[in-house]
Amino acid sequence: MRSPKLGIALTAVALSLAGGSAAALSAAPARAATGDASVTIVHGIPNTPVDVYANGKEILPDFTFKTVTSPLSLPAGSYTIDVRKAGSSASSTPILTATEQVPAGANVTIVADLTAAGKPALTPFVNDTSAVGDGKGRLVVRHTAAAPAVDVYAGSAKVIGGLTNGQQQALTVPAGTVSAKITLAGQTAAVLGPVNVPVTAGMGTVVYAIGSASGHTLTAVTQQYPLGGMPLAAQAGSGGLGADPTTPGWPFAVAAVTGLILALTGAMALVRRRWTC
């Protein structure tokens, strides 16, 4: 595990706003021209177990605060997401509902979260799957909590300033563990963390600030998703222990030549003897 000097190593690469509308998703850069989309759902509403429906079918029963799903694989298309109180009937009025256009190959996360004012909402984010350099990963911080603007620290260095509800910011960092801390903007006392966030090479690691500051339920959950397109190569060994034998051929050549000379000498002597006998 490396502990990178983040103050130097971190490079801010993007700052984007994510609106709570389907329009944000339609701008998704497709990972591939064809293929299923990947959708991850995050529960960021405290004390509210829910059932999640997609196009009328229950896909996540009894989905609870702080849960991050495994990626859902689904064909491109339009999806109506309904969120109902856990255990209520499928025909009851949803707490939240949204229709999202999911493009082929897109990688998307939908967060059931709280607005800055503490109201439940569904916030979609497009996960940037563009590749980063070898040995590096993308660290993304998303503010999806009922809290004012925050600063994000990696170790003792402030790496993101003034992030507000619904916003995200991405950094490219060397693989390793980042000790992350979130403070209210302009302050130094942590409202969240420090938490150790493992950053894996070739992966995006998303940290979601969820919950409510006033309700004392602020916490963080993480999601990982793959970066890059189709692999071209794999380097999977550096020790040489498993190498094929590379015994030099010359001892065998010497033995073979010696054997041939010996056999020829013997044969000639036999022949000559026959002649002289």
């Binding site: 997609a54 196009n55 298309g77 999806y79």
Partner: peptide
């Protein structure tokens, strides 16, 4: 057939195409 799940958001049972990784 993605089009089967894309109709007006009122389609029922289209969630069958969704699989958890």
């Amino acid at each position: 057939h993605a089009s089967h799940v894309a109709s007006a958001g009122k389609t029922t049972n289209a969630g069958a195409a969704i699989s958890v990784t």
